[in-house]
Design a binder for these strands. Structure first.
Length: 235
DNA sequence: AAATAGCTCAACCGCCGGCCC
DNA sequence: GGGGCCGGCGGTTGAGCTATT
């Protein structure tokens, strides 16, 4: 049957990570690389579950993380990608080297949402707040449907309305999803020729010029042009 | 200076798809 | 074929910090 549990919850730490735990995790991954999160905590001498280690590494310890304030260009890119992809933070993060999905998600909720609202734009639909199409009749109760609808509306798909209310089966969602992804590629290339939404798993691609981590002044061109790797680990 | 409100963000939770046994 | 784990994801929480009263 299956596999053994990833960790014994009774013997794992929770909450904020200590410097020592960070050091252990960094040292282990530096020596053995990422992967096999299940066995990592034990091997690294950590009283954490693999999930927690993975999250800590991806969101905080990874050497290619940018940190620091988001630039105006990043803001606009996030808004543009969100209008196309909805709350697909991992996909959005994939287009912003050095940024994590968690970071972008937090930034969206704390800054960009407010920014859009101040501009009179509904952050969920990317339409003006007083737009008639935002009437309750067009709202759905299912979150994913709402996201999908907002994506489609923002893409101005010429097939007019796709009624998700009547297509609740998994198959329908699957088909629509595939359709949407294909559509997204086309529309993005049409409207944002500089955007490459072809997603692939790849090593971190943010190129550190130096170790001064305040990256708020980083040039906007860099994040659309992944560089060769030059990974430096924090000491 | 103290109390309160608002904001930020690291970390957790629960779910899902894919894979293993 | 089916039960169960793993890795990954998006949503949510809450501790700590800052601003305001």
């Amino acid at each position: 049957m299956g596999r053994s549990p990833c960790c014994e919850k009774a013997h794992t730490n929770k909450g904020a990570w200590t410097k020592e735990e960070d050091d252990r995790l960094i040292a282990y991954i530096r020596a053995h690389g990422e992967g096999c999160w299940r066995s990592l905590p034990k091997a690294a001498g950590l009283l954490r579950c693999g999930k927690s280690c993975r999250l800590r590494w991806i969101n905080y310890l990874r050497p290619d993380l940018k940190r620091g304030n988001f630039t105006e260009e990043e803001d606009e890119l996030i808004i543009k990608l969100h209008s196309l992809l909805g709350n697909k933070w991992s996909l959005i993060a994939g287009r912003l080297p050095g940024r994590t999905d968690n970071e972008i998600k937090n930034y969206w909720n704390t800054h960009i949402r407010r920014k859009l609202i101040n501009r009179g734009i509904d952050p969920a639909t990317h339409r003006p707040v007083n737009d008639n199409n935002n009437s309750p009749n067009h709202q759905t109760t299912n979150t994913s449907q709402t996201v999908a609808n907002s994506n489609i509306s923002s893409l101005e798909v010429k097939t007019t309305t796709i009624s998700f209310a009547n297509t609740t089966t998994a198959l329908a969602h699957h088909l629509v999803k595939e359709e949407f992804e294909e559509e997204t590629k086309h529309v993005v290339q049409e409207r944002c020729p500089d955007l490459n939404l072809e997603l692939r798993i790849s090593p971190p691609h943010y190129h550190h010029q130096n170790n001064s981590s305040s990256s708020s002044s980083s040039s906007s061109s860099s994040y659309m042009q992944p560089q060769g790797q030059h990974v430096s680990y924090p000491s």
